Computed example of a mutant assay.
Amino acid sequence: MQIMITHGRLAKTHVLQLGRWQLLGLALGLLAGMLVLSGVVYHLIFVKAAREGWPVVSQVVKLVVKDEFAQRDRYMRENLEAMARRVGEMQARLVQLEAMGERVSGLAGLKPEEIKLSEKQPGGQGGPFVPMLPPEQPTVQDILQAIDWLDELTAHRADVFTLIESRLFEEQMQALMVPSTKPVDGPTSSAFGFRSDPFTGRSALHTGLDFPAAPGTPIKAAAGGVVIAAEHHPAYGQMIDVDHGNGLVTRYAHASKLLVQRGDIVKRGQVIAQVGSTGRSTGPHLHFEVLMNGVHQNPAKFLAGDGRTPQRRVAGAARTAGTHAH
Score class of each variant (00 low, 15 high):
residue 169 F to M: 10
residue 84 A to G: 14
residue 313 R to T: 15
residue 25 G to D: 08
residue 286 L to D: 01
residue 262 R to D: 08
residue 63 L to F: 11
residue 222 A to E: 00
residue 19 G to Y: 07
residue 186 G to C: 04
residue 254 H to A: 04
residue 302 F to D: 02
residue 167 R to M: 03
residue 107 L to C: 06
residue 318 A to F: 09
residue 221 A to C: 08
residue 265 I to G: 05
residue 87 V to H: 06
residue 303 L to A: 02
residue 240 I to N: 00
residue 21 W to P: 01
residue 134 P to N: 02
residue 171 E to T: 07
residue 2 Q to V: 10
residue 306 D to C: 05
residue 150 L to E: 09
residue 277 S to L: 04
residue 236 Y to N: 03
residue 313 R to D: 09
residue 283 G to C: 04
residue 316 G to A: 14
residue 6 T to N: 13
residue 317 A to H: 08
residue 78 E to Q: 14
residue 159 D to K: 15
residue 274 Q to V: 02
residue 260 V to G: 06
residue 311 Q to F: 10
residue 84 A to M: 03
residue 6 T to Q: 13
residue 163 L to Y: 02
residue 191 A to D: 15
residue 86 R to Y: 14
residue 251 R to C: 02
residue 220 K to S: 08
residue 89 E to G: 07
residue 148 D to Q: 15
residue 41 V to I: 08
residue 278 T to L: 01
residue 251 R to D: 01
residue 303 L to Q: 04
residue 32 A to P: 00
residue 281 S to N: 09
residue 109 G to T: 03
residue 6 T to E: 07
residue 314 V to I: 15
residue 148 D to Y: 11
residue 60 V to E: 10
residue 272 I to F: 04
residue 326 H to D: 12
residue 73 D to E: 11
residue 237 G to A: 02
residue 242 V to I: 15
residue 71 Q to D: 11
residue 321 A to F: 09
residue 192 F to P: 01
residue 33 G to S: 08
residue 98 E to G: 14
residue 293 N to L: 07
residue 170 E to C: 01
residue 323 T to P: 07
residue 142 D to P: 00
residue 277 S to T: 03
residue 30 L to V: 13
residue 161 F to A: 11
residue 130 V to A: 11
residue 19 G to L: 01
residue 70 A to I: 12
residue 26 L to A: 13
residue 243 D to H: 06
residue 130 V to E: 13
residue 270 Q to R: 06
residue 232 H to W: 13
residue 216 G to L: 04
residue 77 R to V: 06
residue 140 V to Y: 11
residue 161 F to L: 14
residue 249 V to D: 00
residue 301 K to I: 02
residue 280 R to G: 02
residue 13 T to K: 12
residue 168 L to N: 04
residue 131 P to K: 03
residue 5 I to Q: 07
residue 18 L to W: 12
residue 145 Q to V: 05
residue 236 Y to P: 03
residue 268 R to Y: 02
residue 245 G to A: 07
residue 100 M to R: 15
residue 261 Q to S: 12
residue 283 G to Y: 01
residue 159 D to V: 07
residue 27 A to R: 11
residue 82 A to S: 14
residue 254 H to T: 02
residue 51 R to C: 04
residue 126 G to P: 03
residue 89 E to L: 12
residue 32 A to V: 13
residue 13 T to G: 01
residue 100 M to W: 14
residue 135 P to L: 10
residue 139 T to N: 05
residue 323 T to A: 13
residue 111 K to M: 08
residue 249 V to K: 02
residue 289 E to L: 01
residue 154 T to P: 03
residue 247 G to A: 06
residue 295 V to A: 12
